[in-house]
């Protein structure tokens, strides 16, 4: 209930005029560029692991030539968007929650209100915009890196024919799949941002440092769980015919 109220306020703040530009740019850079090293490292290993695991599974019933299909479908449709969202929930979301909770317990939010500045407009709206716009880009980036890693592992380590692999990926992955991945990115980005801002904003002054820890913890867990559950519904909606 309280969460819905927060969502309504944040929504109004988000769409009543453009967000403060400097804040938006700062958060967008932090969320986007700041996540790149972590996301690159994780996607490379997840992509390679996807290939290795799929090979191990398929070789048991002689289907190792279908690796391209599996890596295309499993990776681009499902794994990389969710991974980008969960990683960003753990990094960006936790940072958002910690910084907002910190402002809340050191009374900076109240100070803003006293100065007749709407904290929703100044603090929450730019963060929401930054993460919502950056996560789809990160998803697209993860798609490319992950697919390259899968390709590398499949051809170099498993000895699958590279031409067959790419042909299968081209067969099964259409432009609409990439678009669906980006759409998932937008949804997850907004969700991660709103959940993290909510938990950060709700921190109480009397809890002190503990409140910051609790807010961070809840932001990470809730955004990860919500993204994974929502992914199931989005996939059912987009792909089941």
């Amino acid at each position: 209930m309280e969460f819905l109220h927060f969502v309504r306020r944040a929504f109004v703040a988000q769409f009543s005029g453009p967000p403060p530009r400097d804040e938006f740019v700062r958060h967008a850079l932090d969320a986007g560029v700041g996540s790149l090293p972590l996301l690159t490292l994780l996607t490379i290993f997840a992509g390679m692991n996807l290939s290795v695991q799929a090979y191990g599974t398929f070789v048991r019933f002689g289907g190792q030539d279908l690796l391209g299909l599996f890596c295309g479908v499993g990776g681009i449709r499902e794994l990389y968007p969710v991974m980008a969202a969960v990683i960003c929930g753990a990094r960006i979301g936790a940072t958002l929650a910690a910084s907002l909770a910190n402002m809340q317990i050191s009374e900076q939010v109240e100070a803003l209100e006293v100065m007749a500045v709407d904290p929703m407009r100044l603090l929450v709206a730019p963060r929401l915009w930054a993460v919502t716009l950056m996560l789809p880009l990160l998803c697209g980036y993860a798609d490319v890196v992950g697919l390259a890693a899968s390709y590398y592992a499949a051809t170099e380590q498993m000895g699958v024919n590279g031409g067959t692999f790419m042909e299968q990926v081209r067969d099964i992955v259409h432009l609409s799949d990439l678009a669906a991945g980006v759409f998932k990115g937008v949804v997850f980005g907004w969700l991660v941002a709103i959940v993290s801002c909510y938990h950060g904003y709700r921190a109480l002054k009397r809890d002190g440092a503990e409140g910051v820890g609790v807010a961070t913890n809840r932001a990470i867990v809730h955004s990860a769980v919500l993204c994974i559950v929502l992914n199931m519904f989005l996939s059912a909606l987009l792909y089941v015919r």
């Binding site: 990683i87 936790a94 940072t95 929650a97 820890g213 961070t216």
Partner: peptide, 27 residues
């Protein structure tokens, strides 16, 4: 308080990195 948030955050990112990297080598 900032340090507490940072510790919680760093723990999660570092463990996830470690889990995914180790997972690949185990596979």
């Amino acid at each position: 308080a900032t340090g507490v948030g940072k510790a919680a955050n760093d723990t999660v990112t570092m463990t996830i990195v470690l889990i995914l990297v180790a997972d690949y080598f185990v596979s």
